[in-house]
Simulated scan of single mutants.
Amino acid sequence: MKKTKIIGLTGGIASGKSSVAEFLRARSFPVFDADKAAHELMSKDSGAWQDIIDEFGKGILTNSEEIDRQKLGQIVFAEPERLKKLEAILHHRIWQAFENFCTEQRAQQAKIVFLDAPLLIEAGWHERVDSVWLVYLSREEQIRRAMQRDKVQAVVIEQRLDKQMPFDKKKLVADRIIDNSFTLEQTYAQVESLINELQVAI
């Protein structure tokens, strides 16, 4: 049986990556959401919960002893070294969950599986997938769309962007670039073209 193709899907703040992921799901492709997996790993019933509390203390807990992701986020975005420690706790667990997902999809004869991960490149996962698809947007448009979506000032978005790998560096790693500067219909047309290209190759 031919090997299942693993496609890494990544982007940046308000780039439209989630819209592309939803489009792929609507086309019945299996898509693993790394962010959702990270949130699940932070739940009280997960194996990562205690490791996170040991590292960051009980001050990040809610009254129901769940991790307050907003409090945790404030800590790690202010201290890059703490962010690295959180990633060390989560990333290998997320990848294991993805491998389990792939095993399930292979059992269902899936020919293509997508890994939707904003930190795909930062985590080094781009080296483990067959191809990297980058959803691109200019910084100016990222800021405009993120302000509209999150109802925050430009300076807040700029601070977030400054802590992320810039698109110029991500482009050097990407195998395919999806330009989301125009309408969603035009973005979806690009994705459809990439799907057709991929299906021909397999």
Rank of each mutant, 00 (worst) to 15 (best):
W95Y: 14
V135E: 02
E122L: 05
N100Q: 12
W125F: 14
F32I: 06
P30F: 08
V191R: 02
I178H: 01
E104Y: 08
A117K: 01
C102A: 09
H126D: 14
H126W: 11
H92T: 11
P30Y: 06
G16W: 04
L120H: 00
G8K: 02
I143Y: 01
E55F: 08
K58G: 13
D175E: 11
F167E: 06
R25N: 09
Q159G: 15
D45N: 15
L41S: 06
V76G: 07
K84G: 11
E87Y: 09
I202L: 14
V76N: 06
K170H: 01
K84S: 14
L83W: 09
E81Q: 15
E140L: 07
T4C: 13
F56M: 09
F32D: 01
G11D: 04
E79Y: 11
A117I: 04
I7G: 01
G8Y: 00
F114T: 00
L184P: 04
S19G: 06
G124I: 05
A110K: 10
L172E: 15
V113M: 04
S15C: 07
Q164W: 09
A21I: 00
R139N: 09
M42S: 13
E99P: 01
R149W: 05
K17G: 02
L72I: 08
S193R: 10
K17W: 03
Q108W: 10
S193F: 08
W49E: 07
L9H: 07
K111W: 08
Q164E: 12
S19I: 04
I7F: 08
A174Y: 01
V31F: 10
A38M: 06
D168G: 10
Q105Y: 01
S181Y: 04
F167S: 08
D168E: 15
V20R: 00
E65M: 11
W125C: 05
I89K: 07
E192T: 09
I157S: 00
F29K: 02
I75M: 13
Q186H: 13
E197M: 10
N196S: 09
R144S: 15
A201T: 13
M165G: 08
I89R: 08
E99Y: 10
R25V: 00
F114C: 00
D33H: 12
S193H: 10
D150I: 02
V191M: 06
A48C: 14
I89C: 01
S19H: 04
V156D: 13
I53H: 11
S138H: 07
A174F: 04
L61Q: 06
G59M: 03
G11H: 01
A123P: 02
Q96F: 14
K2P: 12
L172W: 12
V152P: 14
L9Q: 04
K111Y: 08
G59Y: 07
H91I: 01
E55V: 00
E127G: 00
Q186T: 10
G73C: 13
I177K: 03
E81P: 02
S138A: 11
S18K: 05
V135N: 00
V152R: 15
T62D: 12
E104I: 07
E158C: 13
Q199H: 12
F101Y: 11
M147K: 15
D51P: 00
E141R: 09
E40M: 13
Q70E: 09
G57C: 14
Y188M: 08
